[in-house]
Amino acid sequence: MKGLDFMFISEFCRGIRLGEEASRIILDFRMEEEEYARLKQRFQTDCHSFFRQVTGTAGYRQMLLYLFARFAVDAYEEYRIREIEDNIYFDTFSDIRIWSEVCYRDYGEYGLEEYNWLQEHVRLQLFRLGRLQFQPIAYNGENLKVGQRLVEKHQLVLNVHIPEGEPLTPDEVSHSFRLARKFFRGIPMVYICSSWLLYPGLEQVLMAESNILKFQRLFYIYELNEASREAEQRIFRRLEANPNDYAEETSLQRAAKSLLNNGGRLGSGCGIYIPGERD
């Protein structure tokens, strides 16, 4: 790797606040530039083949951490061309840090297991603006009226994602939506979200004034997935066949475990939020 690239990789690791051990994996990784170029080309032209090849390699989680850090560095040029601020660049790619920490928690090693999701970031199809991430997509549901607005199938909307981390306070959420309005000029401010945070049954396990429920109430929830176990995965950090095996370290875990043991469900929901419109 060229010296200048190496220095920027170092800056990248600092910018996304990657820990020392994970940073060393990236900085010390050895790969010929010709091999990197071949893998990047495969990623760009046939990502399924790319992932099959890489995940079939010993130590693939560390390799993916290295590769996505390089992909992110390569994406910086396009950020500059589009005149997107550095803070948005580093905030967006902080997902690499978040998912490397999840990998350590789940597998005992720094790397990446949630590799498919990070495609959106390096292709500049998703951006983190404040607390939330936004992704322009075509709405694929049926025509839906929200307040006085009609949301039509295939229209361009902004898909909202909630990364792990800081509290989801109303002020931070409002700030993110204001940033999105400025950043995505020309795109109607119609937000969709599919998440366990939008499951109405959370009212049974959360305090009425919880930040999660305040976020949920912004959305008109138009679809539920009762079979989803995303909430269990997020709350307990793992899935168990028997709810009795779940931990009870937090009040949320205790309430969720009690609900599940008594035949309740924790699914996920899909919702639409249009500022100024109420159902």
Score class of each variant (00 low, 15 high):
1 M>F: 08
3 G>C: 12
4 L>R: 14
6 F>N: 15
11 E>N: 08
14 R>H: 14
15 G>D: 00
16 I>D: 03
24 R>S: 11
27 L>E: 02
27 L>D: 08
28 D>R: 06
29 F>I: 03
30 R>F: 12
47 C>L: 11
48 H>R: 13
49 S>E: 15
52 R>T: 12
57 T>H: 09
60 Y>L: 04
64 L>E: 05
64 L>A: 09
64 L>N: 02
67 L>E: 09
71 F>E: 11
76 Y>S: 05
89 Y>A: 03
96 I>C: 03
97 R>N: 13
111 G>V: 03
114 E>C: 15
114 E>Q: 15
116 N>R: 15
139 Y>N: 04
141 G>C: 01
146 V>L: 07
148 Q>T: 13
148 Q>S: 11
154 H>T: 13
159 N>T: 03
161 H>S: 13
162 I>S: 06
165 G>E: 00
166 E>H: 13
167 P>V: 06
178 R>H: 02
181 R>M: 08
181 R>C: 09
181 R>Q: 11
183 F>L: 00
184 F>N: 00
191 Y>E: 05
193 C>A: 08
196 W>E: 07
199 Y>F: 10
204 Q>C: 08
212 I>G: 12
213 L>M: 10
219 F>E: 04
222 Y>N: 09
225 N>P: 01
237 R>F: 12
250 T>Y: 08
255 A>V: 03
257 K>Y: 12
258 S>H: 15
261 N>I: 12
264 G>I: 04
271 G>V: 06
272 I>H: 00
274 I>P: 00
